[in-house]
Design a protein around this nucleic acid. Sequence first.
DNA 1: ATCGGAATAA
DNA 2: TTATTCCGAT
Length: 607
Amino acid sequence: DRARGFAFPDWAYKPESSPGSRQIQLWHFILELLRKEEYHDVIAWQGDYGEFVIKDPDEVARLWGARKCKPQMNYDKLSRALRYYYNKRILHKTKGKRFTYKFNFNKLVLVNYPFIDMGSTGSGVPQSAPPLPSAAGTHFRFPPSTPSDMLSPNEDLRSPGGVFSAVARRMARGSVSDCSDGTSVNSEIEDGNGGGGEERGGERGSMIHPRLSHESLFRMVHPDNLSPFPVSPLPGPGGAGLLAPPQSPALSLTPSSHLPYTPSPSLSPMLGSHFSFNPEEMKRYLQAHHQSVYNYHLSPRAFLHYPNVIIPQPHRLAQDKRELGERGGAERGGERERGEPLPHPHSEPPHLSPFKFKLQPPPLGRKQRDGSQGHHPRQSSLSSGSGSLSSSGLGSSLTGLPKIKVEPISDIESEEEVEVTDISDEDPDDRGDEYDLFSPRHPRPHPHHPNGTSSHPHPHDEDLDEDVFKAPAPPPPGLLPFFTSHPHRGPPTLKSEPAEPGDNPPPQPPAQGQTKCIPLKLRFKRRWSEDQRMEAMEEQDDKKVRGEKERERETERNGGMQENGAGSAPSPPPLGGYECSLPLAQRGVNQDLHQATAQLSLENKDC
DNA sequence: ATCGGAATAA
DNA sequence: TTATTCCGAT
């Protein structure tokens, strides 16, 4: 079964119709390659955070083809697949840079996947490298009776030899090359017997906790065994250790900040109620980002996995700021703030920018879809001063809503395009489970950002990445008003139902401006560029806040927690000097590459 | 190079 | 559903 032999956790595989068959997805594969030094001449992190360059498109294609047993694979095809990620917002293209794409790692990832270690070990890793999942972090403590028991007390979790390294090593085998579906070939993980072996020899010796199973560890991180993040476990080359290469030094909440990385989102509340973390930090972190979280309709459910995490409530930044200042220390654990949803800070009431809604044929083959629909409105477009969406029938019918594509009429930039996808046909329960919350499959954008100034994509577009979003929990049936036009003018805005004081976490706050409701039954897909602009704005705000409290925070940081200062390399001087150091052991690298490739061929023999 | 529609596969 | 394949457009 899959239980024992996966190179990647389940979520990394696309569920295939056929039960036993799951295949690695391209982006995981890419991440995989990016992790391995052997392939650094083929593909490597480079440039901004999350950015990577395919140095040898043909080779990458070849490798991909090998993995998928598609000998006819070429870059043209591969790139098409990559382009499909654009709308999924897993990737986007770095314009102007050949063969350069950018992963969508971002703060949302952090919010959703706090276990990702934002720290760094200081190894010469490119800024563009993503953070690694890690049990690291000083705030993190393994509860007794968890796999942590198996860890030596002194083990520095952050080090390459840390838990995740072990996990990763275990998970890693055979991941680079098999035409398998993850059900068969990769089953040698636990015992390290199988075909992989590439770096196994080296790893073997350093294997720290042989008894830790991927599963157990994984569950530690993710109760449901659903990792949101590419814990893609490719063991690093040789004994170097798998964490060696891609440690990201640079995942900061505010990329433009001078801080190497932000204080603590690295706190890793991964153990459910067992973990410990600095509430203050977490709070700050969350507060700094909840806005965007909400804007992106991240369901508070996402936090269910982290009981101690205060579910962010919509606040105004200024307010947050104040609050932060006030509460110096103690935290009331699970208490939540209940703030009035406020407009997005930087919402400008721009002139109305009409959208036109392209109705898209609803996906066929869905239950209620066919039979019940009186069918979608036939308007191909409509202008909306505000909330005209309701006229689309959204307000009255929860089902049978057509897919609509929203795009600003006035804006030539196709990047402003917004797509609204109806999901009314989905079973609300489907999204109920947390898995979905982490699922990369359901991009959700939000209303067009009013900010008109940032319409031109800067060449140096800040690397404000977005992540993939998940639809929020559906509101109690029957309570859905939907789009309500707001008295104010402004771009069409969506409104969400005010939270029921009771149990249901508050739905999304306005994404912006005097925005309102977002039909919970809608999912949005939007291009990054727009998100980025949006994020950029938020970043500004963050920075503002940060700046004012910088000193204070500095103090807190040092006092309240050691971050990664203690155990391992102090804040590494990470940035810079990676690309330059790339052409290091060209020889060795190539050798490794050959080796790997050879092995690849070997393992693929059964294609 | 890059993009994305269309048809199709698994 | 996620690619794969093909391909015309930019």
